[in-house]
């Protein structure tokens, strides 16, 4: 029982992935990008995620597939190095690994919300949700944009320093999450080739 909060946190960390983007010149219309994103009902991409942790002497890598269904369902299926499925639906996160299955309530852990909501609110094109949690900064053009999110809430600030999402029109390309301790994760996305 006691495991849950921690696992929840870690689970969510996973979801958060990371991103980075080279920032082209600023574009003022955040609404336009959000509108494009909001029009997508389903999405399916492969990801490769790298984590750069100070405690390790080299980065670790995992890969799999991300699926999104409007308005709020997000599934992350990690295939390597270990099979694991995370499903975020509404306010709950379900994690399955091997024979174990856990259900976690997101509201219980404010410190993990930025990991989740940065990605989900962006995918949903939900500007107000983004702006509730983050200071939002947009750079670049519609063809190639970079969203920089800085958590507003103190709980969230402890776990996430900054999220950068790189995209082109309604596609997300890279998600980088930097943590206050200098560790970071980088998730690179590309159209799915999996069956």
């Amino acid at each position: 029982m006691r495991a849950l909060p921690m696992l929840a946190l870690s689970v969510l960390c996973a979801l958060c992935g990371s991103a980075a983007a080279s920032a082209p010149p600023a574009l003022d219309d955040l609404n336009e990008i959000m509108g494009l994103l909001a029009m997508r009902q389903h999405g399916r991409v492969e990801f490769i995620e790298q984590r750069f942790l100070a405690v390790l002497s080299r980065p670790i890598e995992s890969s799999g597939e991300l699926r999104y269904d409007a308005p709020d369902r997000l599934e992350k299926r990690t295939l390597l190095p270990h099979a694991e499925t995370l499903v975020l639906s509404g306010g709950t996160l379900t994690m399955e690994r091997g024979s174990s299955r856990r259900v976690i309530d997101l509201n219980t852990y404010p410190q993990i919300r930025p990991f989740i909501e940065s990605l989900r609110a962006t995918l949903a094109g939900d500007r107000s949700a983004l702006e509730r949690l983050f200071h939002v900064d947009l750079a670049g053009s519609l063809a190639r944009w970079t969203l920089t999110l800085v958590p507003l809430e103190s709980n969230a600030k402890q776990s996430v320093a900054q999220v950068r999402i790189d995209g082109a029109r309604d596609q997300l390309l890279r998600v980088e999450i930097r943590q206050p301790d200098g560790d970071r994760s980088l998730m690179t996305l590309r159209p799915s080739t999996l069956p």
Binding site: M6, S10, A14, M95
Partner: peptide, 12 residues
Amino acid sequence: DNLASPAGLLFK
């Protein structure tokens, strides 16, 4: 390996 997956990251 766990660190690579969400379940382990918190324990880093």
